[in-house]
Amino acid sequence: MKLDKIMIVDDSATSRMIIKRCFQMAGYQDSTFIEAEDGLKALSNLNRNAVDLVVTDLNMPKMDGATFIKKLRLIDKTKQLPVLIVSSMGNERLETELEDKDVMGILRKPLTPEKVTDVVGE
């Protein structure tokens, strides 16, 4: 999967660092990473920047991940943007709520390069 620009949305700087590193180790060492600490900041950033993939946490202050994804789908530019959820709270109900063809998957924390590879391929 070709991913030149990847946006990472998570309130924890440590988690953003781990996600970035896992993608780099899974083969995206030359991609550009854009970081946002909540859904609101991510939305305003996406207004200015086009990305190939959004990786988002769910449990965040200001705007949580589920609301953020719903908002993304209301905007023309990001309607079909691929989204990957990385969270410590993966659950079945949420998966059906987010049954959205452009949500590539819900990966459970701790994230590893192997989990990234499972979703995006070798």
Partner: peptide
């Protein structure tokens, strides 16, 4: 931040 994220993941 690192320790808090660890606990968050552990809790889940």
């Amino acid at each position: 931040d690192c320790l808090l994220e660890l606990l968050n993941v552990l809790g889940g």
